[in-house]
């Protein structure tokens, strides 16, 4: 009896070592590209172009950051993205609560029909062109509205908010408020919303990060470079290799080309920084949000 226990413990111990090794390898595999990008962004243009940088900056330099942060195109993109993220999030959160709260109320007649209407849109859509036609007919093409309205409400976020309201706002609370003469809107504003700060934060961050990271709507709806969000500017510089500025002679041209490579790494860092900085603070809530949504009603 004792021998078997010991033998098994040893087997378990070896197994655990294996598990830990695997997790270490996973950790390293995820980290390497991230560190590589950061190391390159702080290196000199010639070192980057020669491929001499791996996980530590070579010939440290801040030149790429200076260049990136003085580029009007990039700054404009940053500014536009901020507008879309803040404005879009405000609109999205308001509309999401406006539909999720009534849907959470058991006495709200017709909520099953409305919920089915919403869920169906997750299964089937008219497609790219039919949606484009609607945006066009509304006169939203090439305006800031096209960035925040067509994708304003996510069904997933509605489900998360609705589930939260349903599981944390007891019916008794509503009955008590009604006895005190509160209307539905008053109850929502003074009781439900203050109690729902965590879920509002979660869906707001989901919408904000989505707005910050998306480029598709901008690609199809916007033509004016002055309206481009950061992601489109990034795509032009990082993937389509359109360099900014012009060079007069050959030496300068070579330098520009080398600089273009470092600039890419610096841009990646600059554009991802806001999200990666706030993400550890919210990761826990984000996880909770995902799980609340998973408890489908």
């Amino acid at each position: 009896m004792t021998t078997t226990t010991i033998a098994e413990t040893r087997g378990d111990r070896i197994f655990l070592i294996g598990v830990k090794t695997m997790l270490w390898i996973t950790l390293i595999l995820v980290l390497i590209p991230l560190i590589y990008v950061v190391a390159n962004s702080f290196s000199s243009a010639s070192a980057v172009s020669a491929g001499r940088v791996f996980l530590w900056p070579v010939e440290p330099s801040l030149r790429a950051y200076q260049e990136a942060l003085s580029d009007p195109q990039i700054l404009k993109g940053y500014y536009n993205s901020l507008i879309y993220a803040v404005g879009g999030t405000l609109i999205s959160v308001t509309l999401t609560i406006a539909i999720a709260y009534p849907l959470s109320r058991r006495r709200f007649f017709g909520r099953n029909v409305i919920m089915s209407l919403l869920l169906f849109t997750m299964l089937f859509s008219g497609g790219l062109i039919p949606t484009y036609l609607v945006v066009q007919d509304l006169g939203m093409l090439n305006t800031r509205w096209a960035m925040v309205i067509p994708s304003a409400i996510g069904v997933w976020q509605v489900i998360i908010a609705r589930t939260f309201f349903r599981s944390t706002i007891p019916d008794d609370l509503y009955e008590a408020a009604v006895l005190d003469g509160a209307s539905d809107l008053r109850f929502l504003w003074s009781v439900v919303l203050p109690l729902s700060k965590p879920v509002i934060a979660v869906i707001a961050l989901m919408y904000a990060i989505f707005q910050w990271n998306t480029y598709f709507d901008a690609l199809i709806y916007l033509k004016d470079p002055g309206l481009y969000p950061l992601q489109i500017v990034l795509r032009n510089i990082l993937i389509l290799n359109s360099t900014t500025g012009s060079a007069s002679d050959v030496a300068q041209q070579l330098e520009r080309q080398q600089l273009a490579n470092v600039l890419k790494y610096a841009l990646i860092v600059i554009s991802s920084l806001p999200v990666l900085l706030i993400y550890p603070l919210i990761a826990r809530h984000f996880t909770k949000g995902v799980m609340v949504g998973a408890v489908k009603g």
């Binding site: 509309l95 062109i129 409400i153």
Partner: peptide, 21 residues
């Protein structure tokens, strides 16, 4: 009343495209 605008959103941006198809 509250549901009206979000519902209009779904009709305009999800269901009209389906009919546009």
């Amino acid at each position: 009343l509250l549901v009206l605008i979000p519902l209009a959103y779904f009709v305009i941006f999800k269901y009209i495209p389906i009919s546009n198809a």
